[in-house]
Design a protein around this nucleic acid. Structure first.
Lengths: 345, 345
DNA sequence: CTGAAAGCGCTAACAA
DNA sequence: TTGTTAGCGCTTTCAG
């Protein structure tokens, strides 16, 4: 059932004015007499007039809405980032349309096409773990469509990018493990093609190297679906447990992988950290309630969302094509949990 | 920076046709010759033509987008519900615009006003814990605007409603506690004005009564902000701990309150469940990883989202005013955790 | 089978 | 100070 909202025309007719006069009165134009303005304004509020944003969009060729594509809303990191995005967007009068790729390349492409055809003014995206081919994004970008990458950024496309210092985050986590006495540290991480994966693995390896431990390929496990399938993590862990010497700790490269790992280890009856320690990226807000409350690398998700949105709106509202793109790198925080800080026997 | 998309006019000009012919050809009208159709279609795909949805909206007086207002996306229950909402909405070609009230009445009103003025075709809402006055919703509803309530529904407004059997969920949880041997069971729950609060408290009291335990007012604690402020939960627990005899278990009425309670109890050095047991509503997907892995009442959030969206789209697409409204009640599941099933000494 | 014209709600250049 | 008109992209009578 539709319901007809009041229009400028209604006001004009009721007051015996022209639509343009009404329009101008509503926008408080200086070329309208005070009395007319008052008359119009009064009547407008009385009939609860609100300008039709669709008509405005058609005229202005902009919808004042931006699209966001993330892997999953039901993921602390992304939902916190979205909070940041919304806070800035709403402040500036923009709508946010959120879509999820569920870590599927096909879904990402479809959802992108859909969003693009729904006339959003710009896009914030953190690509799916399964995304290797970037044609869908390149095509849009080449047409001059404003895009900002955050978190899982893409080097091949030249635009604003916001991420954390993943290298450092991974380095800190691995160092922390080594300081606890762990030596055979494995890593379970996202698919190899992701920017964040490369950086995190590099940080992990650098930490090992500094302690003169040679990184072993058999201890690095990539999850193409980012842990969307628990079986993926199970497989990785099964393989790790067969390696000699058996790893005594795991550095996990994402929220989903961190909790997924814990789940799998527990189901196998392995104790954390006695049998095998876990430290990884996570933005879960109940990490201290976990058994055990593991040490995690936290990302400033909210802030990332804010920064990315500011950059996007800047792009959208720029009068001329932008060629100078920024790359913002935020810092991670290592949240050390007491219970995990026991030194290994 | 704007970027101009191809329009029907462009096609018409390039092909020496009129815009109406092109429009008809694109919509595969029977009154267009096969050759012309082919010509148009071919050219359209070549230049990557996509109809401008804004122009369509203006014409059709509908935007094919629906609004959703929830307390917080960063809440398992809501993010799961949103997944359900999106799955149905996208299937039917609708966009979903998500907003958060953060459990603030003012924010809810503002966000609602904003959404309504942004020409959404309908609204799905789970009101904030702070919402008592319903004028903002009534006004919209009276103007014939399609609204569907889910989870935290509102009796005063006559429209479709989707919720779970909160009474039963609370009853089951409380019964479970009593079967474990707990007798002095307190409850910490959302603000008193919410539908779900009343139902959950009623279920809790009914369970007590059946075991001939008289509900005590001093054991029922309402949190006006739904636990958004941890201090609220702290206060509630402090008061509960002073009651004689001291409660030996707490039934928590929401996701946030459940984890919030655990957090507070732990910080006080109280062991769960030895010192005080906790059972409550939660849709967290890592509940088994908690210390201890408490028994919870789970809601079919995804399904709720789906059902609510189907009802809303039905409302939106109905040709005539709807007067016959549905009230769907889904079942909750009690997820019993082994570690919590130890009988109290 | 195709085209011209009107109209959705709004703004803005141009007239008066 | 106010009104007339055209146009944003699209569909849809109404005429050929």
């Amino acid at each position: 059932m539709k319901f007809a909202a009041a229009t400028i025309k209604d006001i004009a007719k009721a007051l015996g004015l022209s639509t343009s006069t009404v329009s101008r009165a509503l926008r408080d134009s200086h070329e309208i007499s005070t009395e007319t303005k008052q008359l119009v304004l009064e009547y407008a509020t009385r009939i609860n007039y609100h300008p039709n944003p669709i008509a405005l969009s058609l005229k202005e060729k902009r919808s004042r809405s931006i699209g966001v594509i993330v892997a999953e809303i039901a993921n602390s990191f992304f939902s916190q980032a979205i909070n940041g995005i919304e806070s800035v967007a709403n402040d500036k009068g923009y709508n946010v349309i959120i879509s999820q790729s569920h870590e599927s390349y096909d879904k990402e492409v479809m959802t992108l096409q859909y969003l693009a055809s729904r006339s959003i003014d710009g896009l914030l995206i953190s690509v799916s773990t399964a995304t290797k081919d970037l044609q869908h994004l390149k095509a849009l970008h080449d047409r001059g469509f404003p895009i900002v990458f955050f978190d899982r950024i893409v080097e091949e496309i030249n635009t604003h990018k916001v991420a954390v210092d993943n290298f450092r985050g991974a380095y800190d986590a691995t160092m922390h493990l080594m300081r606890q006495g762990y030596q055979d540290i494995a890593t379970i991480t996202n698919s190899e093609n992701l920017s964040i994966t490369k950086e995190r693995v590099a940080g992990y390896m650098e930490a090992l190297s500094q302690k003169h431990i040679k990184p072993r390929k058999s201890l690095i496990k990539y999850c193409f679906h980012g842990g969307m399938l628990l079986s993926e993590i199970e497989d990785a862990i099964n393989q790790l447990l067969k390696v000699k010497p058996r790893p005594d700790a795991i550095f996990t490269g994402s929220d989903k992988l961190t909790t997924g790992c814990m789940r799998v280890l527990k189901s196998k009856g392995l104790r954390i950290p006695e049998d095998i320690a876990v430290v990884g990226f996570s933005n879960s807000d109940i990490i201290e309630l976990l058994d055990p409350p593991i040490t995690v690398v936290r990302q400033p998700a909210f802030e990332m969302g804010q920064v990315a949105t500011e950059l996007l709106l800047q792009l959208i509202e720029s009068k001329r094509p932008v060629h100078d793109f920024e790359r913002k790198i935020l810092a991670t925080t290592l949240i050390v949990q007491q219970d995990n800080a026991r030194v290994k026997a």
